[in-house]
Design a protein around this nucleic acid. Structure first.
Lengths: 191, 191
DNA sequence: CCACCTTCCGAACGATCGTTAGTTTTCCTA
DNA sequence: TAGGAAAACTAACGATCGTTCGGAAGGTGG
């Protein structure tokens, strides 16, 4: 991919995140590139190509982040690592993450199906951590692991709406992890 | 508001939630009403009016839901009630909730500012519960209440993406509450 | 029966949409 | 320095966008 083509993808990620896919015109993209709108088609075949590219980049980034989480070791530490990895992607690639979470639904046909499969696979990898934690006894054996995973994924997926560049996401992920692990009830009142 | 006008608002909520605000044309709305697209303007002055109306309806619904939560009594129970109330709105008015959470950002000018203020106020009301819980000692005194509220609000705000009509949201809210309160770590390993 | 109000039709408006095509410029490389 | 590919320009295409407008139904209350 040429340098110019790469710039176009970056502009698309930024504008799709800022104004939405349908709210961004080829003219907007051309203006961001400092070019006439017809010139955009020297690089792409259709506007939908750009959405697909950004969404795929997001899927790859999140999967790569999960790849960095070890397969073994204490589940608690792996959950913490998974949250850290996820939030790091969000804060470092906010535009891409936004498209991955919010704009993907404007994909059509095969691409949409392929994206949904990748997204489902990502969430399944996430969920597996919690299930394993319960099965190995590192989390409470009566844990509702599906709900626990849903809670963690909700925090992860909602983050793009409020996370700002420069935030220390490692510390944030640790706070989430601590809360998920030990809850917020006072120790004294535990029963 | 006439019956026909009310139908138009319902169609707008449904289509905005399904296809997005910019992905929905006046023609789409007209088709849903079984009418020519020019006829839509017998009821509205602009497409933006419909977005404003649905978004406002969402804000009103969520605030009304919080109004049902008592001002006194155990904070833990009030948090549970707030989560129940929120999720009930999501499941019973899924389209409106979706516009409230996802499509509001296409509001412009004063309306956008007014909406953002209402949304902030809602989240602040939610946050206050957690702060009060810590201050009153009903939650752990070293609680990071901002993060705890963020975690709960993330679950609440993300729910529209996966909640399906017919789900028992009271039970779901209770599961979330239980997890938030006591965490998922095994009792034996608590330190 | 008439007047009125709501609703809708049908046609059109200018603007903008995504896209195409032919041509020209730019710049690297052989 | 000539050739060629990449990139951009210019102009236009048909389609669709949100919106306007004059008039025609249709029903309701006086």
């Amino acid at each position: 991919m040429s340098a110019r083509r790469h710039e176009l993808t970056r502009a698309a990620a930024r504008l799709f995140a800022e104004k939405g896919y349908h709210g961004t015109s080829i003219g907007d993209l051309a203006e961001a590139m400092g070019v006439q709108k017809g010139s955009v088609y020297a690089h792409i075949e259709s506007k939908a190509d750009l959405l697909w590219e950004v969404a795929s980049e997001g899927a790859a980034a999140f999967h790569a982040a999960l790849d960095s989480v070890p397969d073994e070791g204490p589940v608690v530490e792996r959950i913490r690592a998974a949250l850290r990895a996820h939030l790091r992607v969000v804060v470092e690639q906010l535009d891409v993450a936004t498209v991955f979470v919010r704009e993907w639904r404007y994909l059509q046909g095969e691409r949409r199906e392929e994206f949904v499969a990748e997204r489902r696979r990502y969430e399944e990898r996430f969920r597996a951590l919690f299930r394993e934690g319960r099965e190995l006894g590192e989390l409470r054996t009566d844990l509702d692991d599906a709900t626990a995973a849903l809670l963690a994924l909700s925090a992860a997926n909602w983050a793009y709406t409020w996370l700002r560049p420069g935030t220390d996401t490692d510390e944030l992920a640790d706070r989430f992890t601590a809360l998920l692990l030990d809850g917020m009830r006072g120790y004294a009142s535990r029963q």
